[in-house]
Simulated scan of single mutants.
Amino acid sequence: MSTTTLLVRRNDLANARLAIAPDTPLEDGQVRVRVDAFALTANNITYAAFGDAMDYWRFYPTPEEGWGIVPVWGFGTVRQSLHPGVATGERLYGYWPMADSAVLKPGHLSPAGFSDEAPHRAQLHSVYNRYMRCEADPFYTPGTEDVQALLRPLYTTSWLIDDFMADNDFFGARTLLLSSASSKTAYGTAFQLSQRPGLEVIGLTSDANRAFCESLGCYTRVLAYEALEAIDGATPLVYIDFAGNVELRRAIHTRFANLRYSCAVGGTHVEHLGAAKDLPGPRATLFFAPAQIRKRQGDWGPAELARRLVEAWHSFRDRVGDATRPWLRVRRHEGADAALAAYRQVLEGRGDPSLGHILAIR
């Protein structure tokens, strides 16, 4: 047996290729999982763009110098097990390589799932090391695996951004400006924010995506990137940056004298990423979802945090999948070559924002 993996040049994300390598024998305590399908979104491009700074390349290292494996969220099935607590045939949700199989070393087992205890992941955040058994996962519903793979990890980030903002009383502002408004993490955040009274949620997007963003109904208004002058420059506001566009960030920091907080979340505009040093106003601060998880686990306890997240997720999932006005349509890409083409498409930011890409390398 062999494993097919999609490799990405770490300093040139457009340079991607497929690699096939023979499977190595499992060691005691390990399991081999067939990666059945995974989502590919702008969030995964962010993982690659910040792969060195945020250690995303370390989850699935490759011996090929200068190349990396982008981690993705999706579902897999255990096809070989040398661990007494994990059965062949178990279905799992979790964080996979862009490949058709993965080797894990389960530890901290519970009826709900387990962690990957591989030595190279010991210092990485536990949120990304946890694998959920679908039969016991409160987030899981049969028949919606594609939507779960596409939106569950993004929505968790969205929910935590909203919670972080509310936890800090929106830094004294009541207007929130979201870039890359058509991206799934952005509109998940807007969905949450729209449920809080007294807030104005403004989405920034391209002209081509304005109609889609307006159709969602969760933005107070939607503006093209070139229309910043439509917002009063004296407005106290928070900027939540899902684009990572350095020129846009500089323009916002320069125009809005009462910018209360600048939150950097993603990097959908890969060709325009940058640090934008010496910006006027507050320092752009990277949002790290696991830090807010740790805080709320301390505030509420893990069980209560999980309960709130599950309840919110089901509400969001139902809205996204509403048969009369769905926000998301799924497109599947079967096979290694199709997966490679889909990666390049998502990297370039091409396509319909209402589409969600599900890949299977097999």
Rank of each mutant, 00 (worst) to 15 (best):
S101D: 03
G301V: 02
A251T: 11
R294V: 07
F287G: 04
T156G: 04
T3H: 13
D137T: 03
F242W: 05
L228P: 06
A257N: 06
P22M: 08
A42I: 12
T141H: 14
E135A: 15
T62P: 05
W300T: 02
Q297E: 15
F171E: 09
Y219C: 09
E304M: 13
E65V: 11
Y131M: 09
E247W: 12
R152Q: 10
D100I: 10
V265D: 07
G356W: 14
G266W: 07
E214V: 07
L286H: 12
N245W: 09
D322H: 12
E271N: 08
M98P: 01
E117L: 11
P119D: 10
A122G: 04
I240G: 13
L204D: 00
Y128F: 13
A284E: 11
P119W: 13
G66Q: 07
Y56S: 03
S110K: 10
E226I: 00
F191A: 11
D12W: 13
Y219K: 07
V201D: 05
N209Q: 00
L150Y: 08
Y225S: 00
K295R: 14
Y225G: 01
V35G: 00
V31D: 05
F316P: 01
A136C: 04
A42E: 14
Y47P: 02
V78N: 09
R362N: 15
T5N: 11
A186D: 12
P71C: 01
A14I: 09
R32L: 14
A291S: 15
R319W: 03
M132D: 10
S182V: 14
V31C: 01
D163R: 10
F50R: 03
R9P: 00
V310F: 04
Q80T: 08
R296Q: 13
G266I: 06
L204F: 00
P290A: 10
T285L: 14
N43S: 00
P142V: 09
I45F: 07
V320R: 02
R34I: 00
W159A: 10
A360N: 14
D318R: 06
L150A: 09
G298F: 11
T4L: 04
R308K: 14
W96D: 03
T4N: 08
T324Y: 06
L259P: 06
H108Y: 13
K184M: 09
N15S: 14
P22F: 12
R250V: 03
R210E: 11
L237V: 03
H83E: 04
H120M: 04
F242V: 05
R331E: 14
L216E: 11
A224E: 13
G266Q: 06
L150F: 07
A42K: 04
Y155T: 01
D352L: 01
P353S: 13
S81M: 07
S194H: 15
P326H: 13
A339D: 03
E135W: 13
T254C: 01
E229C: 01
R296L: 08
A122Q: 13
W73D: 02
F191C: 04
F212G: 09
D162R: 04
F170D: 05
W96L: 02
F50T: 13
P25T: 09
V33G: 01
E304N: 07
D116K: 04
S101L: 10
A173R: 00
D12E: 15
G143E: 05
G198P: 12
A149I: 05
S2C: 08
R250C: 00
I252L: 12
V86T: 08
H125I: 10
T144F: 13
V147Y: 15
E214L: 08
N44C: 06
S206V: 03
F171T: 03
